[in-house]
Simulated assay, not measured.
Amino acid sequence: MKISNEAKVGILAIAAILVLVLGFNFLKGKKVFGKSPVLYAEFSNLGALQKSNPVKINGLDIGTAYDFRPKDKEVSAVIVEIHLTRDVVIPKDSKAFIEGNPLGISSIVISKGQSNAFLGSGDTLRTVPTGGLLADLREQVAPTMQRINTTLDTLTRAISSVNSIFDPVTNRNLQTMIANLAVSSAGLQRILSDQTGALAQSLNNMNSVTGNLARNNEAITHTIRNVETTTSNLANAHIKEAVAALENTINELKGAAGGLRTTMDKLQSPNGTLGAMMNDRKLYDQLNRVALSLEILLDDVRIHPKRYVNISVFGGKGKTDPLTSPAAKDTIPVKR
């Protein structure tokens, strides 16, 4: 049987319409074949939520927002019809809220509960009031704004305290301090001057010293070598033997000093002869008298020798009295 061209065009048109309807339903989140489970959620404000926006549990898309309708004529709330695209179970105490996203589309997020009973098709989800994206931003920014306000209050009090501290006297002191700082900075600039500053002169002197060292490098090297030679000679010298000999000499001197000290102790002791002579005053007086008598005798012999050596040819009888005290040493005997 031959099919006419008109029949072929009609069949293609019907197929195209069928594909279009199925694709449209698929894009809307409906099941193409079979009926999808339906849940309802009631929100006071949809925000930026649109039809076909996703419905998520733990970040997983489980359905779409299929249709919106007002709860009453005053639109006190909006009922959202949710078509599930996945075969999941949702506890009855689960709660839904609208999550705004500034970089994408809004979505309905279901927070799972702990109940062992599950929602069926046609049941209504509990919802949590939400203020939308601006409310979320306000909630996140509120603590920061509070801290900023506290900081501004503290700064205001600090500025007030500073203003109360900076009285006219303090301001004059600050001005004087700034002037002194200016004078000090000028002095420091003069010190750090490249041409006439003290630091420049010190650096020039240091350059001169280092130049002299560089010019006398050879002499310094010779001096160091002489010092090395001297230290080497000292290291090779018999210092230990010399020190030992010096110690022996010191020990001998100590022994001699000990013997001399013993002799002096014996001389000073009253038990010895010399000690007795040195320490006995009576013996000193007797020796002094003996010396005086001996001096008188010698003077008498010198002055009157004839009294002790009497040689007379003619029998002369001339005599004088003996001396009783020492005669003057410049006395010349008179011849008779």
Rank of each mutant, 00 (worst) to 15 (best):
S107C: 04
L119F: 06
F43K: 05
R86N: 05
L174Q: 00
A276H: 13
S325D: 06
D123I: 05
L297M: 13
K112C: 04
M278R: 00
M206W: 11
L323K: 05
A15L: 11
I250C: 06
N251K: 14
L199I: 08
R281T: 15
G23Q: 10
V55R: 02
I303Q: 10
S202F: 14
L287N: 09
V209C: 04
L203W: 06
N5Q: 09
M264F: 13
K329R: 10
Q268A: 15
L253S: 05
V19S: 07
H304L: 00
A7I: 15
P322I: 13
A235H: 00
E247H: 13
N149L: 06
G113P: 07
V183T: 15
V9S: 13
N149I: 08
I148A: 02
A13S: 11
D299T: 02
T324C: 11
Q201L: 13
G315W: 09
I11R: 09
V162C: 11
D61L: 01
I165F: 14
G255T: 15
L287K: 01
I303Y: 01
V38G: 00
G34H: 08
A135Q: 10
T223V: 10
P168L: 01
L203N: 03
A48N: 13
L22P: 01
I90Y: 02
N248H: 07
K112L: 15
V38L: 06
T210K: 12
T231V: 14
D265R: 05
R307L: 15
Q175W: 09
G255S: 15
P37R: 10
D330Y: 05
T229W: 09
R147F: 13
S202D: 03
N53T: 03
V243L: 15
S269C: 08
T156Y: 03
S106V: 10
I62H: 07
L12K: 10
T144L: 15
H304E: 06
I98H: 09
K30W: 02
E247Y: 12
L181F: 03
N171D: 09
V227G: 03
S94H: 02
N204Y: 05
I57K: 09
V38S: 04
S106N: 10
N149C: 03
G132N: 06
K254M: 09
S269N: 02
S121L: 07
P326F: 01
P129H: 01
S325K: 08
G131M: 00
F43H: 08
L192W: 03
R126G: 03
E6D: 03
R69V: 04
L22D: 02
R307N: 13
T64E: 08
N58Q: 09
G122P: 07
M277P: 00
T324F: 11
N53Y: 06
G10F: 07
G197N: 06
K317R: 05
I17M: 12
G316L: 08
S184W: 07
V301Q: 12
F314R: 12
L12S: 07
F118D: 12
A327H: 12
Q195H: 13
V313P: 04
T196K: 11
G275K: 05
S293P: 00
T331N: 08
L287Q: 10
S232H: 10
H83F: 06
V9G: 08
K240S: 04
K71F: 03
L12N: 10
S115D: 14
I296N: 02
S36C: 10
A96R: 08
N204V: 11
N226S: 15
E228T: 02
V88I: 04
I165G: 04
I3A: 05
L174M: 13
T229R: 13
A242T: 07
D321S: 14
K95Q: 12
R157Q: 14
G258C: 01
